[in-house]
Amino acid sequence: MSENGAKPKFAMYWAAACGGCEIAVLNIHEKILDVDANFDVVFWPVAMDAKYKDVEAMPDESITLCLFNGAIRNSENEEMAHLLRRKSKILVAFGSCACEGCIPALANLTTPEAIFEAAYAGPTTDDGHDIRPQPEWAAPEGIMLHLPKFYRVVKTLDQVVPVDYTMPGCPPESHQIGAVVDLVIKALHGEADLPPAGAVIGAGGSTVCDECKRARNEKKINRFVRIQHVKPDPALCLLEQGILCSGPATRSGCTALCPAAGAPCVGCYGPAEGVLDYGARLMSAVASVIDSTQPEEIERILDGIPDPAGSFYRFNLGGSLLRAGKPAWSKQ
């Protein structure tokens, strides 16, 4: 416990995220009571009312543990990242968005203009006035209204502030969250050591295949099929059946839930230890087991993968070496 007898402080924040990480934390069931028993929850927008000014008023490093989920999509996200970094002892990039950009970062393949076009003028939304979000707007009442600035490129948390730990997963599995909570509590009681700074926590050290029960052979792929078009062999490696499974490239820790259920791994636990560019790794691996030497046939086999960028970089584009496609970088 802290020196004045008060409980250590806990915060959780969402930036550009879907809310799934919050649900995953609540999904640790009764262990959430341990969190409550051991921590003073000072800031958690999804669970309790709080204002940013309350956080600003806290002394620096007064929050012991802050789980930060969501990517850095706009200036508000970045401001909160800086603020919570300043106020927290341990800042955890929690979940795939904070760690590597996840789905929000797929927007990096295109321009903000195109995104707004799709969101505000597409077939589902037509306000009839061609209005777009404005960072600043002088209201007729005489006040200046401000909205966060929309960035051209979605960033990961560690691209804007230093991060103590990263915890991958979309969302992180509840049993892993539970284990991390247990560990932090033990560490607070002096019963365990925290992992070295910069470590990936709540995940394994190898890849999903390590936890997958399916039988594996030498790989030779002569066609790719989509899961909805076939009835996969329940016991055989999905990749060998031509289903693009990201298991070989994806960090272990999820207990291979998807392949066990008959669905291919989509890669939400991110790159394996030491891998700098998940998509490039997965692509070169898959390309190397294409069972043909004829350029036209290879082309045909690869055409079986719809949306390669979205398949290979689904969770990792923001954290990859490329980070974004050319349109996102270019200033129109």
Binding site: G205, S206, T207, V208, C209, D210, R216, N217, E218, K219, K220, C237, L239, G247, P248, S252, A272, E273, G274, A285, S288, V289
Partner: peptide, 13 residues
């Protein structure tokens, strides 16, 4: 050996 999960991608390359 710790990081290899035996996915066998490399085996016949």
């Amino acid at each position: 050996q710790d990081r290899c999960s035996g996915c066998r991608i490399c085996n016949n390359l």
